[in-house]
């Protein structure tokens, strides 16, 4: 664990010295503020549309950050050969996998925290109230989901040769789960046989990332039960662990050269 933490601090240091995050954050802020300054029929105190746009940008940015940073980690170590001096130390490959995961996940969490703070400030100035519980829940669930995404990307990065193909594949997977995951079994019903079984298997096997998307409840001020948040976190934990172990299984015996 000590080693994994040491590796994760290196990852965080690297990410903090790169520009992508700042660019995305500033872009999100600017677009949101621009949208906020538009006048709609001289109506006062409209805020939901702005929250919607801000959250959408946060989701896109977070996925971009998570995928872009994670996909490069292990391939870059191998390409730059930094993995050699690292593994020449008493470090196991499991520790490398966990360290990379923790680093990316923590970095994403920090970035996400900043994004949600911005969101909270926006809601505060617009509506005069801060849904502390709601925003915290949204952040927490979002972050839990990123754990699965980061672990998935890590697995992809040891399976696929090029980081770009990895990013594309994982992004398509994540996007389709977020958009269609909830309905897959219903789509399956309307299909013919081999497709139906296949789709049903997909439905029950895949990580349901759409659980973690509570944008609609946050915008329309519904509440998510805390127990459900807890169960969802456990759910995320299981899938993350599964993907990490799978990554390790692939990476464990891989020759490095």
């Amino acid at each position: 664990m000590n080693n994994a933490l040491a590796i994760s601090t290196i990852v965080i240091k690297e990410l903090s010295r790169r520009k992508d995050f700042y660019v995305l954050f500033i872009m999100t802020a600017i677009i949101t503020l621009l949208m906020g300054s538009v006048n709609f029929f001289n109506l006062q105190g409209i805020s939901k549309y702005l929250k919607e746009i801000c959250l959408l940008l946060i989701w896109i940015s977070s996925l971009a950050i998570a995928l872009a940073t994670t996909a490069r980690q292990i391939p870059a170590e191998r390409e730059n050969r930094t993995i050699f001096p690292l593994l020449a130390k008493p470090v196991t490959r499991w520790e490398v996998v966990v360290g990379k995961f923790l680093g990316c996940w923590f970095a994403c969490g920090l970035a996400l925290g900043l994004f949600y703070l911005f969101f909270g400030a926006l809601a505060l100035t617009r509506e005069g109230q801060f849904q502390l519980g709601g925003v915290f829940q949204a952040w927490w669930l979002h972050w839990s989901m990123l754990a699965i995404v980061v672990a998935m990307t890590l697995l992809g990065s040891v399976v696929f040769a090029a980081p770009s193909s990895n990013v594309t594949i994982v992004f398509l997977g994540v996007a389709s789960i977020l958009l269609l995951g909830r309905y897959l079994h219903k789509i399956a019903v309307s299909m013919t046989e081999p497709g139906q079984t296949l789709l049903s298997i997909c439905y029950f096997a895949m990580p349901h990332l759409e659980f973690f998307d509570v944008r609609d409840t946050l915008i329309h001020e519904w509440s998510v039960p805390w127990w459900a948040c807890g169960v969802a976190s456990l759910y995320a934990c299981c899938y993350t662990l599964f993907f990490l172990v799978a990554t390790w299984v692939v990476f464990r015996r891989q020759a490095l050269n």
């Binding site: 079994h185 029950f204 349901h208 759409e210 659980f211 509570v214 609609d216 998510v224 039960p225 459900a228």
Partner: peptide, 14 residues
């Protein structure tokens, strides 16, 4: 809901 995934998922959207 048809299954537990659907039932549980309903906690997270209106």
């Amino acid at each position: 809901p048809k299954n537990w995934i659907e039932r549980f998922g309903r906690n997270f959207y209106p």
